[in-house]
Simulated assay, not measured.
Amino acid sequence: MTSVTSLFAPVDADLCQLTDNLKQLVGARHPILYAAAEHLFGAGGKRLRPAIVLLISRATSIPDITPRHRRLAEITEMIHTASLVHDDVVDEAELRRGVPTVHSSFGNRVAVLAGDFLFAQSSWYLANLDNLEVVKLLSQVIMDLAEGEIQQGLNRFDTGTSLEAYLDKSYYKTASLIANSAKAAGVLSDASSETCHHLYSYGRHIGLAFQIVDDLLDFTGSADALGKPAGSDLRSGNLTAPALYALEEKPYLEVLIEREFAQEGDLEQALALIEDSRGLERSRELANHHAQLAVQHISILPASESRQALIQLADYVLSRSH
């Protein structure tokens, strides 16, 4: 399997600069925010979203990427990180990537304010790009993130959730940021509207594949690798692709979910029913379908080291273990 480090080799220097810049941008004036920024941007994240922005920037701009491309990558990671901080508060998560979350380290008040500050600051830097189309694309993302979180909160333990509704929520929570920031990178490179459409579609499908694999790992990954307890989504009533597919085969699973695993052994029984169904296999097929669509869309770019990395990213997303 290709490692994420070697995959992002064409933008490795850009990503190192991005991490340093983010710590300075976020924490320069506030000691507590600087501590939170160190915590957030030093937590060993994959930097997947800014890496995609930088790779697309390098694949579409001649002769080189601009400061605006770099700032877009920073804005993308700020928005993503702000959403994680708020998600962890809502989910009462103690760990993120195996590291204590901001709210468990600094308290809920600081965590909520740090998330708000990151969203506000990303909006400020976004406005200063002076490109209305890019402002619209990334502003839509912030709305989509909130929509996805609200949908997830309203549909807990709802066995009537359709696969289409699950994919819509996955788009709002994960794929929208990747899709719209990918398109925004093309806009800053003055790419054609057709190319920008393909970039958006690449981001949409790679984002959906990433989220489906993430949801699979909740059932198949170890707690150590995930940095959170396995089965967390199901326990909290967040029904993802494996559970939704399993519900078609295992009627008793509906009973367990609808009583919210109230009786001893309910959760373990539900996990066993999902394991015994084709839910995991069909979810892998669904992730593979979206990954292949992503490759088709990015293949319209001229051949380059960066385009090749974006193509290989599809295999990485499908084969990752955490």
Rank of each mutant, 00 (worst) to 15 (best):
Y200S: 00
S283V: 10
A93R: 11
I56V: 06
H297N: 03
H86E: 04
A184H: 01
V4Q: 03
A225S: 13
L226H: 15
E258S: 15
K173A: 07
M143W: 08
E258D: 15
I56K: 01
Q151V: 15
V187Q: 02
Q211P: 11
D218H: 13
S222K: 12
A291G: 04
K250M: 15
H289W: 08
S319L: 10
E268W: 13
P31G: 12
F117L: 08
L253C: 14
S61T: 08
L226Q: 15
A262S: 15
R284T: 05
L280V: 09
G42E: 04
S222Q: 11
S170E: 06
P63A: 02
V135P: 07
N131E: 10
L286P: 09
Q121P: 08
T220D: 05
I75K: 09
E268F: 13
A59S: 02
F119T: 05
R204V: 00
G265V: 13
E258I: 15
T66F: 05
P67E: 05
I142H: 03
T174H: 10
F157N: 15
R58A: 00
Y316M: 03
A272N: 13
F8I: 00
S192E: 02
L244N: 12
Y200N: 00
Q296F: 04
L154M: 15
L132C: 09
L33Y: 14
E260G: 14
V11T: 02
N155A: 15
E268P: 12
H30P: 06
V112N: 04
L54V: 00
A82H: 01
S321F: 07
G186H: 00
Q151P: 10
D266A: 13
R278Q: 12
T76F: 06
P63R: 02
A82L: 03
V26S: 09
M78D: 02
D276P: 07
A179V: 02
Y34I: 07
S192K: 01
L129G: 10
K169C: 08
L40D: 04
A223E: 14
G44K: 02
T19A: 06
A309V: 01
R49S: 02
A230M: 13
G221A: 13
L280G: 06
D214W: 09
F119V: 09
L310H: 00
L95A: 07
S192R: 01
D215S: 11
A314N: 02
I311R: 05
D266P: 14
D91N: 06
